[in-house]
Design a protein around this nucleic acid. Sequence first.
DNA 1: AATAATGTAACATATAAAGTTACATAAGTA
DNA 2: TACTTATGTAACTTTATATGTTACATTATT
Lengths: 136, 136
Amino acid sequence: MRKDSRLSRVLHVLAHLGASENPMTSSQLARMLCTNPVVVRRTMGLLRDSGYVQTVQGRHGGWSLTRPLSDMTLLEIHKALGDTGLIGLSVTSEHGNCFIEKSVNLALTSVFNEAETLILARFGEISLDKLLQRRD
Amino acid sequence: MRKDSRLSRVLHVLAHLGASENPMTSSQLARMLCTNPVVVRRTMGLLRDSGYVQTVQGRHGGWSLTRPLSDMTLLEIHKALGDTGLIGLSVTSEHGNCFIEKSVNLALTSVFNEAETLILARFGEISLDKLLQRRD
DNA sequence: AATAATGTAACATATAAAGTTACATAAGTA
DNA sequence: TACTTATGTAACTTTATATGTTACATTATT
């Protein structure tokens, strides 16, 4: 599976917005990310839908934060991106009615959920300003 | 990204092998998994390389366990499959020399590693016989 | 020698993330 | 008012990766 790098990218963007006085345009941000303005709008649009950033159209418009980075957690941003599951593994969809398969899938799903819950809890403890200060 | 379901599949296979007196052929296993014998050989071959199963060629050949399921952990099997990373998220490769990007990536990588370590430790505690007994 | 198994290379398909094109809409500004 | 510079979004293309398929060599039993 091609891994999802959107979290990494939006954090990069949020860090820049946090350091900027003025709104930044999709083009500026796209240049930073070595990508396309449309990709920026598409991805950042999810954060806007959840209220973490706002946009202004027209001249001197662009993207800006709605609150300081200290008021956003990694968990919130992750969820805003859709939270499609952090674990890169999946369980097979059950084709037949094999009892052993059902049993394996049930158990594995439970382990995955346990792991996911653990990570999400950790994400919830990390505010973006703290994240950017990490040195380890 | 299409998620990796190999762990789920080999556990299904291992559970059957643990319950079977005789070796099971790739074709039998493939039927169980609703796939192709070659897929079975390819994936199970990784477990053989690590010594968890063995194969016998020719008539009455096939796949069998080299040790009881109580002597295999989820962690061992996961690692035998290549351990390409459990977290379905990645960090952008650094194109430019943006200090903020480097900082974000370093911090995020550290969080991902922390999470990964946590899960792997949990996987190490779960033997396959225990996994199959889980009811939750 | 025939049969039934694995081993493996090479290629095809499916899915999801990311990239691209095109154009509509909105808001400043000359 | 017309122009310019932004975002919004649909539709399509590209790319990466897991999975599936075909073909054939090798090995072991009968």
